[in-house]
């Protein structure tokens, strides 16, 4: 098991200024698995997710302690190359956020910022990424339309394709389906099952059924602490903590 661990945190603490948002988080995440992170609003689940690609560095008052080890490397070390890290750890946001560019340009963006100019390679990579995001069939004839002309669900899959194009190892998803209708949500969930063959996926979700459906492991956060972390089927049938049980059975939320 230990060999297959891609992310490991050690006593990870996170602060917004003086406010402690995460306390002593210790978690080991397995390669090519889907880990669902659940918990009530404000429990720190998004903060935790955004720590894994150092997205929280954009917040001036952010401060952290402990270790987050990805592929044997502590990403909280001050010498870490944030840009290189983010290429390895991709992210899909809650609200789909395609650039105001064409479908093609959106997916090509990650390649172009890496200095790739070979048109054939880019074309091939775009097809691959869009196929990977289960969007190719729907957009192959309109790669040059504005991304904003796609439906909400398509826009979110475009954002996934955009993230896949830079070939990350890990994909972070911050409530990727919360703004979508049930059909589009189902598509995203099916896609996640496909994607885990190649990527390690960590998904924050408000929706417990979604966590139960898509994830292999589930982590339950509460007031900045990791309360329980286990295989999803164990967690949802036989939770260790009373509070976990109360949450997943909907007694509070």
């Amino acid at each position: 098991m230990e060999k297959n661990i891609i992310i490991k945190t050690k006593n990870f603490n996170f602060y917004y200024g003086d406010v402690k948002a995460l306390t002593d988080v210790n978690i080991k995440i397995e390669k090519n698995s889907v880990t669902g992170i659940i918990g009530p609003s404000g429990c720190g689940k998004s903060t935790f997710l955004r720590s894994l690609n150092l997205m929280n560095n954009l917040i001036l008052s952010a401060r952290y302690e402990g270790q987050i080890i990805i592929d044997g490397e502590d990403i909280l070390h001050k010498d870490i190359d944030v840009v290189a890290l983010r290429r390895r750890v991709g992210m899909v946001f809650q609200k789909s956020n395609p650039f105001p560019k064409t479908v093609f340009e959106n997916v090509a963006y990650g390649l172009k910022i890496n200095g790739i100019t070979n048109r054939d390679f880019i074309d091939q990579k775009i097809e691959e990424s869009l196929k990977g995001a289960a969007l190719w069939e729907e957009v192959k004839d309109r790669l040059n339309v504005s991304a904003f002309d796609l439906s909400g669900g398509q826009q979110q899959r475009l954002c996934i394709a955009r993230a896949l194009a830079v070939e990350p190892e890990i994909l972070l998803m911050d409530e990727p389906a919360s703004a979508l209708d049930p059909t589009a949500t189902l598509k995203i969930e099916e896609l996640i099952q496909e994607l885990k063959k190649k990527y390690t996926i960590i998904i924050v979700t408000h929706n417990m059924q979604q966590a139960a459906r898509v994830s292999d492991y589930t982590a339950f956060f509460m007031m900045g602490k990791l309360v329980e972390y286990n295989k999803t089927n164990i967690m949802f049938t036989n939770p260790e903590n009373k509070i976990t049980e109360d949450y997943i059975t909907g007694r509070f939320g």
Binding site: V83, P100, A163
Partner: peptide
């Protein structure tokens, strides 16, 4: 320019400079 564009660009591993030139100014 929405913060979400900036975040999307940075999350793809773009530098601050690339984000300004390729995303923020065009937007």
């Amino acid at each position: 320019v929405p913060k979400s564009y900036t975040e999307a660009s940075l999350a793809l591993g773009a530098t601050k400079w690339q984000t300004i030139i390729r995303v923020r100014i065009p937007a």
